[in-house]
C-alpha cells in the first residue's frame, strides 16, 4: 500500500520516507518550470516575497496542456527535474519541502534534501492524462504570460509518486545503478 501524504509538508511527515517508497500526495501543490524558477530565485535574491507560500510547499515540475472545455485541466505529467537543479537549493533553503518531477537530480539538490529535510519524488513521465485525473481544481496564481510555464495552484487527490531522494542522502536511481553495474 502506498503511503498517503498531505500537503503542506512538515519535517515529521518526511522523516519516515525512504527512497523507493510508493506514496500518494493529496492537497495543494504548485507547478513551476524553468522560467518560473528563474523568476522566483531572483525574487529570493532580492529579498522579495514569492508568489506562492513556500513554507512546507510542494512544487510539481510540470507545464500542462491547455484546459479543454468542461475539464478541470489538460494533461499534466512531470517534466525533467534536472533542469531546475541550479535553482533548487535556494528554494529548499527558503522552505520548499517537496518536489515532484522525473529523472535525476544533482548532488547539490540531494545534499540540500538531506540537510534541510526535503524530499524529491518522481511520478510517471508520459502518464499525463492519468495525472490530470488526480487534479480536483486548478488556477493560475502567477506569471500567466508564460502560458504552460505559468505557476498553477493545483488541488490534487492521491497523485501517485515514488520517493527518489529522501532526507538521508539516499537516491533511488543510484541504488539501481549499483544493483546493475557489472562486477
Amino acid at each position: 500500500m502506498p503511503i498517503s501524504l498531505h500537503t503542506p509538508f512538515e519535517t515529521t511527515d518526511l522523516l519516515p520516507l525512504k527512497s523507493g517508497d510508493q506514496v500518494t500526495i493529496s492537497g495543494i501543490i504548485y507547478t513551476a518550470r524553468d522560467t518560473a524558477h528563474k523568476k522566483m530565485t531572483q525574487l529570493l535574491e532580492e529579498g522579495k516575497e514569492l508568489p506562492l507560500p513556500i513554507q512546507g510547499a510542494v512544487i510539481y515540475y510540470a507545464g500542462p496542456c491547455p484546459t479543454p472545455p468542461g475539464k478541470i485541466i489538460g494533461s499534466v505529467g512531470p517534466t525533467t527535474s534536472g533542469r531546475m537543479d541550479s535553482y533548487t537549493p535556494a528554494m529548499i533553503q527558503a522552505g520548499l519541502k517537496g518536489m515532484i518531477g522525473k529523472g535525476k537530480r544533482s548532488l547539490e539538490v540531494q545534499r540540500a534534501c538531506q540537510e534541510q529535510k526535503a524530499v524529491y519524488f518522481a511520478t510517471i513521465g508520459g502518464a499525463a492524462a492519468l495525472m490530470a485525473g488526480c487534479v480536483k481544481s486548478a488556477r493560475v496564481i502567477a506569471y500567466p504570460e508564460l502560458g504552460a510555464e505559468a505557476i498553477y495552484e493545483l488541488e490534487v487527490e492521491n497523485l501517485p509518486a515514488v520517493v527518489v531522494d529522501d532526507c538521508y542522502g539516499n537516491d533511488l536511481y543510484e541504488r539501481q545503478d549499483q544493483l546493475s553495474s557489472p562486477s
Binding site: 507545464g63 496542456c65 475539464k71 494533461s75 505529467g77 508520459g126 502518464a127 499525463a128 490530470a132 504552460a148
Partner: peptide
C-alpha cells in the same frame, strides 16, 4: 477522455 497521452505534445 480525449486527452493527450503526454502533456509534452
Amino acid at each position: 477522455q480525449s486527452l493527450p497521452l503526454c502533456q509534452d505534445t
